[in-house]
Structure formats: structure tokens, C-alpha cells
């Protein structure tokens, strides 16, 4: 049952990406390009998602101790507006603005097997691994310094 839920949630997400046309980088660029023939669709995608998610979260999820499966509700508890958040969001914005592709559309469009998507995803995974490796090195250096 738990596995079916994860798969079902993924299916709905992929369908949302296709229905909203967010898998089309040109559609995303139409939103980001405010000086051209502006297409506000992306804001409506986010609005539609928030209209469903936000009330459901506050009414049905927030009051709960655990998920229905009994698992911990892994809701982020960090509230700091710190340097990694700002630098990370800026770098993500830079990459997003360059190609018009963000992680959701990229993973959905992987089904088409387009070479550009494969390149983007391989580089994206590489970028995530770089940060993971770098933070591991930093933790180790700090441990060495304190011991």
C-alpha cells in the first residue's frame, strides 16, 4: 500500500507537469520573459497547486502527529534565512533562466529520452553530488579540528 501511494503520487505529479505544459521549456520561458510576450501560465500552475495543497496541509496534515502510514511527517523544521539558502536559490535561478528547465519537468520529460534532457539531468545529479561531497569534506575537517 505504501509503495502504491508513492507511485500514485508520482503519476499525479507527472500528469500535472504535462497538463500544465510545464514540461515545455518554451512555456516556462514565456513566463520568465517579462519584457516579451508575457505568458502568466506558470503563476497559475503554482496558484492551482497552492489552492489544493495549502488548505489540505493546514486542515488535515498539520494537526497530525504522524502520516497515515505511521511514518514521521518529514516537514522541514529549518527556518533560517541563511547564506546557503540565498546562494543556492540564486544558482538555481541562474540555471533555470538559462535553459527554462527545473527538476520536475526534467524528470517527467526523461520519458521522451531526449538527449538534451539526459545531459541536463546527468549534470544536475553531478551538481547535487558535488554539494554532498563538499559538505562531507567540511564536516570531516571540522571534526578533525575539534578532536
Amino acid at each position: 500500500m505504501n509503495r502504491v501511494i508513492a507511485l500514485l503520487a508520482g503519476i499525479l505529479f507527472g500528469m500535472g507537469m504535462v497538463v500544465s505544459q510545464m514540461v515545455d521549456p518554451a512555456k516556462v520561458m514565456g513566463f520568465l520573459n517579462i519584457s516579451g510576450n508575457w505568458d502568466p501560465s506558470l503563476a497559475f500552475v503554482m496558484g492551482g497547486a497552492l489552492l489544493v495543497f495549502s488548505p489540505c496541509y493546514h486542515l488535515f496534515i498539520k494537526p497530525r502527529q504522524t502520516a497515515i502510514s505511521g511514518e514521521v511527517l518529514k516537514v522541514p523544521t529549518t527556518t533560517a534565512i541563511d547564506k546557503p539558502l540565498i546562494i543556492g536559490a540564486s544558482l538555481f535561478g541562474l540555471g533555470w533562466g538559462l535553459a527554462g528547465i527545473c527538476p520536475g519537468p526534467a524528470l517527467t520529460a526523461l520519458v521522451t529520452g531526449q538527449q538534451e534532457i539526459l545531459l541536463f539531468l546527468a549534470a544536475m545529479a553531478g551538481g547535487q553530488l558535488l554539494v554532498i561531497g563538499w559538505s562531507k569534506l567540511r564536516v570531516r575537517a571540522m571534526q578533525r579540528a575539534s578532536s
Partner: peptide, 26 residues
């Protein structure tokens, strides 16, 4: 190029997906 209805419908699917994953699996 504005497609408000398919954008809202697609967005609602994304929101529903997020609700299901968080409510059932945390």
C-alpha cells in the same frame, strides 16, 4: 499563449500529489 485553465488544472494535480505524499507517507 496564456493557458489559464490547463495551468490551473495541472497545478491542482501537482498540489494533490503533494497532499497524498505528505498525508500518507509523511
Amino acid at each position: 499563449n496564456f493557458t489559464p485553465w490547463s495551468a490551473l488544472a495541472g497545478g491542482a494535480l501537482l498540489g494533490l500529489s503533494a497532499v497524498i505524499l505528505l498525508l500518507f507517507r509523511g
